[in-house]
Computed example of a mutant assay.
Amino acid sequence: MNWKRWLAIPALLIVLFGIGGLVASNVQTAVLEVSDNPPLHHRIVFQVNADDQVPMKHAVSNSINLVRHYRELGEAARVEIVAYGDGISMFRADASPVRDILEYMRVNFPEIAFSVCGNTKTIIEQREGHIMPLIEGTRVVPFGIVRLVELQEAGWSYIRP
């Protein structure tokens, strides 16, 4: 009879933990369903830190594709492309290899924002001896890397093309 009690205790624990896990998963699911009520808002940030047309073009095309996709679904989306270091050339009005498409994006995709690192901009301006012109609509943030961290901590999806 004593051995039956020893078997009953683990069986009881398994049942209790199983029920507790089921209740916990249902509570978590309920919380997610309430917080994810439409309209769903997608937030994506792209990092560009190289003076290379390939990642720049990937950031551009992927941003447009994301916005188009979520528009078709009737879901809101916000995208921000953050450039710092050598990637700041992406938003230079005088040298951007993707200037034409960025101007098109600014007009047709207001969901996509452009940001450049103010620290990098200042360093380049000091080195070149003049103000660096930026593509219209580009905003300057104090530090590109800090902007990436802030957006990720706020729940934005991070993409590095």
Rank of each mutant, 00 (worst) to 15 (best):
Met1Asn: 03
Met1Val: 04
Arg5Cys: 04
Arg5Val: 06
Trp6Val: 11
Trp6Ile: 09
Leu7Met: 14
Ala8Leu: 13
Ile9Tyr: 08
Pro10Asp: 06
Pro10Lys: 13
Pro10Tyr: 07
Pro10Asn: 08
Ala11Phe: 12
Leu12Phe: 14
Leu13Ile: 15
Ile14Ser: 08
Ile14Arg: 04
Gly18Asn: 07
Ile19Gln: 07
Ile19Gly: 05
Ile19Phe: 07
Val23Gln: 10
Val23Glu: 01
Ala24Gly: 08
Ser25Ala: 13
Asn26Leu: 11
Asn26Thr: 09
Val27His: 05
Val27Leu: 08
Gln28Leu: 12
Gln28Phe: 09
Glu33Val: 11
Val34Asn: 08
Val34Trp: 11
Val34Tyr: 12
Pro38Met: 02
Pro39Leu: 01
Leu40Lys: 14
His41Asp: 07
His41Ala: 03
His42Arg: 12
Arg43Trp: 01
Val45Tyr: 02
Asn49Asp: 14
Asp51Cys: 01
Asp51Asn: 15
Gln53Cys: 04
Gln53Glu: 15
Val54Gly: 07
Val54Glu: 15
Pro55Lys: 13
Lys57Glu: 09
His58Asn: 09
Ser61Val: 10
Ser63Tyr: 06
Ser63Thr: 07
Asn65Asp: 14
Leu66His: 13
Leu66Tyr: 08
Leu66Asn: 12
Val67Arg: 08
Val67Glu: 04
Arg68His: 06
His69Cys: 02
Tyr70Arg: 15
Leu73Arg: 14
Ala76Arg: 13
Ala76Ile: 12
Ala76Asp: 14
Val79Leu: 04
Val79Ser: 01
Glu80Thr: 13
Ile81Val: 13
Tyr84Ala: 04
Gly85Phe: 01
Asp86His: 05
Gly87Phe: 00
Gly87Lys: 12
Ile88Cys: 00
Ile88Lys: 00
Ser89Cys: 01
Ser89Val: 14
Ser89Trp: 05
Met90Tyr: 04
Phe91Met: 08
Phe91Tyr: 13
Phe91Ser: 00
Phe91Leu: 04
Arg92Tyr: 06
Arg92His: 11
Asp94Trp: 11
Pro97Val: 10
Pro97Trp: 04
Arg99Pro: 02
Arg99Tyr: 06
Arg99Val: 03
Arg99His: 13
Asp100Pro: 06
Glu103Pro: 08
Tyr104Pro: 00
Ile112Glu: 05
Ile112Gln: 01
Phe114Trp: 09
Thr120Leu: 01
Lys121Val: 00
Lys121Arg: 15
Thr122Lys: 11
Ile123Met: 07
Ile124Phe: 06
Arg127Pro: 00
Arg127Gln: 12
Glu128Trp: 11
Glu128Pro: 03
Gly129Cys: 10
Ile131Met: 10
Pro133Asp: 12
Pro133Arg: 08
Pro133Met: 05
Ile135Glu: 07
Glu136Phe: 06
Glu136Tyr: 06
Thr138His: 07
Arg139Pro: 03
Val140Trp: 00
Val141Tyr: 00
Pro142Met: 05
Pro142Cys: 03
Phe143Ser: 02
Phe143Val: 00
Gly144Asp: 02
Leu148Ile: 02
Val149Asp: 03
Val149Lys: 02
Glu150Gln: 05
Leu151Gly: 03
Gln152Tyr: 03
Gln152Val: 02
Glu153Cys: 02
Gly155Val: 14
Trp156Phe: 14
Ser157Asp: 06
Tyr158Leu: 13
Arg160Gln: 15
Arg160Val: 15
Pro161Phe: 07
